[in-house]
Design a protein around this nucleic acid. Structure first.
Lengths: 83, 83
DNA sequence: ATGATGTGTTGTGTTTACACAACGATTCGT
DNA sequence: ACGAATCGTTGTGTAAACACAACACATCAT
């Protein structure tokens, strides 16, 4: 498959919730380095792993992963009325 | 990663919309056989492919893919009030 | 000062998601 | 009766998602 790049907010959610890579990795059943690979975009997760990660953060998948780039955090917060 | 099985309703949506494997494959940019492999659970899609398929059917990802088994169509329709 | 913890990265394997070609079976249009 | 389209399946090859070990660097607690 020719792949257009995949965007994710794993690091964002992880920092927000104060959980380490090791914690997340353990929770979803992968190697801690795998989380690192995902965060820096070195490779794209399987759908299964994507679903597990989203489930761990208790948000819908498309809040964590998207084919289109995510808006900046500033914009997202502004739009959420959290200013 | 140790994987618990992945469920999908690709064939269901495909039949419902009257689209062939070739059509879907073409739309999401994979080989037609790949769709067959996915439908019969021979392997699990990448997150990218999962997102593309859900986007093609214009539904959220978790309507097409789930880590837990889907309810029977009968139950789903009953719950939807389509009886 | 030292040890624990989190992060970033690199390297070597294994497994699996894909591509692509090929074939048989069924149904449908003509 | 014939061909076209869809489906189901099998086989071979490649690229990428993983596992796991290892190491450098920073921060923080003791």
């Amino acid at each position: 498959m020719h792949h257009l790049c995949m965007h994710n907010r794993i690091a964002l959610f992880r920092n927000d919730r104060g959980v380490s890579r090791r914690d997340l990795a353990e929770a979803v059943g992968v190697n801690p380095q795998t989380i690192g690979y995902l965060e820096r975009g070195d490779y794209n997760p399987s759908l299964e792993l994507g679903l597990k990660i989203a489930a761990y953060f208790d948000v819908p998948v498309d809040l964590v992963f998207s084919l289109a780039p995510f808006p900046s955090l500033t914009d997202a917060l502004r739009r959420a009325g959290d200013a």
